[in-house]
Design a protein around this nucleic acid. Structure first.
Lengths: 257, 257
DNA sequence: CTACAGCCTTGATGTGTATCAATTGGATCA
DNA sequence: TGATCCAATTGATACACATCAAGGCTGTAG
């Protein structure tokens, strides 16, 4: 199964310069196909260097992407690792995901034109950078259909960012609040009623999705109602104080889709 | 903000035939761009009907997609709603996500060639279907670069499916097990050591990501070690019994990425 | 309109995990 | 090599939520 594992573990060899193991070869990199297409397979044509930065080093704690920055590049992790996070209203950071060699960072920024979260190196790492603005991919070089497909995929990737926020919610109250907000936001995105709507799923389904007990979901709804944040009649719901719900969810400042 | 909300709530009008509200117009549909490109904007050319099924009705509880089925189509929710789930080793279903009008279903199947989870209607709904096999999108009509980009995006969408599994995990033990497995799987995907590796992130980061306390993460690692499933020395980890860990995680039969 | 059935709510108790507190261990740097 | 500091472990207590149990409501079908 794991025949030729290079292992950096345990007695670290004391080489003079820090030796980085666990580097993905180009063949195993998420950017490989694109690099190859761009003609970057073998001896490097100079013009390619304008588009793909190769193996740029990143120091521990350094940010490759800052949340909110304008989209322009995607990165492939060559070695090392990264975490991505958003900063909550409380100032705490909520980790969204981790990234490892061969994986791509930054795709979430494609649809909206800005990166939704910050990307920080967990250790001394290196990345390859693919410059979208210079490639002008979404412009002339991409057919309309493909453009739409890519947009749809990118949007989905961003939409999924709600889920880690749900995970990060420590208590049932926060989770339920976040759930309601995510529903509302998704409805609004397609111009459906987003303040007063009918929950299509059962309490059982909600509980399953949120990792809570059915009874707890019910109690949270009741609690919100008693706080005048919400009006619930069975599956009919009206958000009466969205801002307050956002505060409870802890994402007052977060611009999650 | 929400100017022209049509509302289906509360005193439901007793029309003879069930009136379905909350139908997205084509303009607001996730498939819109693609339909438009395909020439489906106005009066429908017959040949288009081969590719796009329009407003096909789906009954409550009916499956639009079965987990594991061969990828061939994507669907846009026209009205109604859906849930997606995987069936766990225990036979219980773990809900991955919900889908609402205007959103696209099935994109996750693009990269691997099969759908990772089952899609079931929560109510009487309707969908538009876009037939990929007939469009042959990934074949001749798509440039190599775009193909790679779409693949990367689709892969990412699928990778995110780990997260709901983490959410669904009721207790800290399951979450930690699932976390370790997801790391291992992601390493393996790029031919990095996946049995014995170094955790690049702190316990603090792991706890934040899993929605647990640092101490709990530590205790879980210790517990696994005492069960001989794991060997931990600080950030160095070796999975000694992956199958057993899968059992604990509850996804013995799941083929998550 | 009435009756049934499943869904949802409400209450009481136990357990898993957060929290608080203190110690140990490991990595970094002089 | 040794000192320092932060990370990780380990233990004790409190609380939030799961679980068990029962009753009320809503929607559906006859």
């Amino acid at each position: 199964m794991h025949t030729k594992e290079r292992d950096t573990c345990c007695p670290t060899p004391r080489a003079s310069s820090r030796r980085k193991n666990n580097v993905v070869e180009c063949e195993s990199c998420g950017l490989y196909g694109m690099c190859k297409v761009a003609g970057l397979d073998a001896p490097v044509p100079d013009l390619i260097d304008e588009i793909v930065g190769r193996r740029e080093p990143v120091a521990v704690g350094q940010n490759v992407i800052a949340a909110g920055a304008t989209f322009g590049e995607i990165y492939a992790v060559k070695s090392g690792s990264f975490k991505t996070y958003v900063t909550m209203a409380s100032g705490e950071q909520q980790i969204i995901d981790f990234y490892f060699p061969g994986e791509l960072i930054g795709l979430e920024g494609l649809s909206e034109g800005s990166y939704p979260h910050t990307v920080e190196a967990l250790e001394a790492s290196s990345v390859c950078r693919l410059d979208f603005s210079k490639l002008n991919v979404l412009g002339e070089r991409l057919g309309e259909f493909q453009k739409q497909l890519i947009n749809a995929l990118s949007k989905r990737a961003r939409q999924d960012q709600w889920v880690p926020l749900l995970m990060g919610a420590q208590n049932a109250e926060q989770r339920t609040a976040t759930f309601l907000l995510s529903l509302s936001a998704r409805f609004a995105e397609h111009e459906l009623p987003s303040v007063r709507f009918k929950l299509p799923m059962s309490r059982h389904d909600i509980a399953n999705y949120l990792g809570l007990a059915v009874e707890t979901v019910s109690r949270m709804f009741q609690r919100f109602q008693s706080m005048d944040l919400l009006e619930v009649h069975g599956r009919h719901v009206e958000l009466r104080d969205i801002d307050a719900i956002r505060v409870i969810a802890g994402l007052n400042n977060i611009n999650a889709t």
